[in-house]
Design a protein around this nucleic acid. Structure first.
Lengths: 114, 114
DNA sequence: TGAAAGAGCAACTAGCTGGTTGCACTTTCT
DNA sequence: AGAAAGTGCAACCAGCTAGTTGCTCTTTCA
């Protein structure tokens, strides 16, 4: 099985897709709205957006494909809510990057001082 | 002056551009390489990448525009090094989003239990 | 001095992105 | 039953993105 073989590059791909999903102002504001904890319909998320409903739908689709959002159909509306796991995942990743950088700098500095 | 007026939407734009810069596998691996702390030339960053030097150059330009990377010309090579501040900024932002979500859930839960 | 290494600039391309509009379908409400 | 609200799907479009290639310029080094 090449599961371990693929795991590293898959993680990279997943991470990139999450970051890409975050890389748009509209989607960032959608996420902010969803932070209230209350599942919200597409129409509601569209209100006050000077975008068309379809545009917002597409953005929601991007977020859903990145696993950051989940939708449930209730009657005629489909309610979206936040799925925090991917966000936490990339937050931890960024934390790790920062730490690595700090450690590297400290190591380089001590090397100079030797 | 409309500095305060603009500050919120500017922060959004900046954040989005940083996330967008992170939303690409190639750029993520470049960042990983730069975490070593050693400034590296374009050719070096290109080595082992099955991409052309120009492609890598463009990626570096994207990272530089997002403020995540800084370059110094030394002789015939231009050395790139990490600039950790934007990364820390968006990391804190994600932290904040996570917290808001947790708080919202807790509040909703306690509301149900009332 | 002259070849090789490192980089910059410009032009070009295919494919993806973000947006629109039009139409059809289901659910709700009077 | 019939209008209105909320979605979904498909087609279409302009602009951006990620990549390439070709050429030129500077720096290094034998």
């Amino acid at each position: 099985m090449s599961n371990e073989r693929r795991s590293r590059s898959d993680a990279l791909k997943t991470r990139a897709s999450v970051f890409a999903a975050l890389g748009d102002e509209t989607r960032l504001s959608v996420l902010t709205k969803l932070c209230s904890g209350v599942p919200q319909s597409i129409s509601r998320l569209t209100a006050g957006t000077n975008l068309s409903r379809q545009a917002v739908t597409k953005h929601l689709r991007v977020l859903a494909n990145a696993g950051m959002v989940r939708s449930v159909r209730v009657g005629r509306e489909s309610l979206f809510e936040l799925e925090p796991q991917p966000i936490e995942e990339v937050r931890d990743y960024l934390d790790q990057v920062s730490k690595q950088w700090d450690d590297a700098l400290a190591r380089l500095k001590s090397h100079v001082e030797e």
